[in-house]
Each structure stands twice: as structure tokens, then as C-alpha cells.
């Protein structure tokens, strides 16, 4: 377990934000942590949607249960948090 900084690029928001997570966090937990800083602040919630995480410019999302430590993401690397119909 270790604090791990990522950069959040949240769909619909206007700015990248520092996103402190833990290496043991799953991608769903990363998405939820990112949502804290965007949803209800500058981005409206989208009921019926879930949030997925991917590398910037990647087509594929990380598996929802994958842990940060397993993802190969570098410290401060930017992840895109994308709305997906549930």
C-alpha cells in the first residue's frame, strides 16, 4: 500500500487535476476518487452511467478490478475517466 499520484482527465471537465490514489485501489476506486473532484462541481452526474478508466488516447479501458499497482501507470501519468452506459 502506498500513496500514488495520478492525473485525472475527467470527461466533460475542463482541466487536469492531481489525483492522489493508492497502489491497492481498483480502477473503479480510481474513477470514484476522480469523480469527487469533478462531478457535482463542474460536471453533472449521469445517472445510469458508470465511470471507466483508460490511459490517455487508449481505446481499451483498464479492467474495473485491476489495481493501480498492476496497471503499469507511471506516477502522475494521465488517465481519462470516461462515462459509460451501465
Amino acid at each position: 500500500m502506498a500513496l500514488y499520484p495520478l492525473t485525472s482527465n475527467f470527461e466533460g471537465d475542463f482541466v487536469l487535476q492531481l489525483l492522489p490514489v493508492d497502489t491497492e485501489n481498483t480502477m473503479d476506486e480510481v474513477a470514484a476518487a476522480a469523480a469527487v473532484h469533478s462531478v457535482g462541481r463542474r460536471v453533472r452526474d449521469r445517472p445510469g452511467c458508470i465511470l471507466r478508466v483508460r490511459r490517455q488516447d487508449a481505446q481499451e479501458f483498464f479492467p474495473r478490478t485491476m489495481k493501480v499497482a498492476e496497471s503499469g501507470l507511471k506516477p502522475t501519468e494521465t488517465v481519462e475517466i470516461i462515462w459509460q452506459a451501465a
Binding site: 475542463f14 482541466v15 487535476q17 492531481l18 492522489p20 473532484h37 502522475t76
Partner: peptide, 19 residues
């Protein structure tokens, strides 16, 4: 806010685009 905006290592201003 409850976190920092990520800033550019050149202009030192927030990295942003159109929302």
C-alpha cells in the same frame, strides 16, 4: 476545490481544454 489543477511544466498554468 479539494485538489490541485495539474499545471504545465512550461507555462506553469493549468493544463486545460474545452469542456
Amino acid at each position: 476545490p479539494e485538489t490541485l489543477p495539474y499545471v504545465c511544466n512550461m507555462c506553469q498554468l493549468p493544463i486545460l481544454g474545452t469542456p
